[in-house]
Amino acid sequence: MILVGEKINTSLKGITEAVRSRDREFIARKAVEQAENGAHYIDVNCGTLIDEEVEALPWLVQVVQEAVDKPCCIDSPNPLALSAALRVHKGKPMINSITAEKERYDSIIKLVQEYNAAIVALVMDDEHGMPKDAPTRIKVGVRLIADLVQAGVALDDIYIDPLIQPISTDSNMALVAVDTIRGIREVYPGVHFMCGLSNVSFGLPRRGLLNRTFLVMCMLAGLDGAILDPGNREMMSMIYAAEALLNRDAYLKNYLKAYRSGLLD
């Protein structure tokens, strides 16, 4: 499971102030915590600071990479901010995200190519917006993957986001995401999937329970990446258990290692 740590995001408490005041120590600590808890990528997102995103995003990348030896998941729909951040990134970055919407696709694909980046791709296009049903999402996703491959992106660098929407306003939405993952994986077994899970439980009590149950359902369908808080013990223990049960953990090494580290308690 490829884990992206989501905690450095200016829409979360405390981060806006830290970025505004360029508090290196605070940001570095967030990065170290997440890396220690198992994050493979550190997400950086300061999109709420509209006026200074172009300066703040590269600053975040630099502070994170001075603190931990991990690549960043650079999270912005703004090509200018992305470009500035990519310029200072070391190693292979992940860009979050591209869609099949023409304007967005054209501006982001150049950066993916230039920096040989891994790319999170949302199953959206101009014609359907955010499709409500799985068959349309699969169609949009398959076409988007074909375009990306055509543009020289390796299948192994593509992370499809199936769009997670709340079951509170449309009770079919969890299944739509699961079916989307399964359907796209049938066509492209080598592609990856990446998404945040917490949208699914919007408006409901005991969100953690819904989020981690949903995670397991998505993993069975083929989800192999997630944007989450790696400090969330309940969620992480569920990932270890699910990987073990889905035969994605040879000799159950990770499961047993997590057990000995006390991560499953």
Binding site: P166, S168, T169, S171, F202, G203, L204, P205
Partner: peptide, 10 residues
């Protein structure tokens, strides 16, 4: 107040 949830409100 958190006593009713979105699906119930709908």
């Amino acid at each position: 107040n958190g006593d009713m949830f979105v699906p119930e409100v709908l």
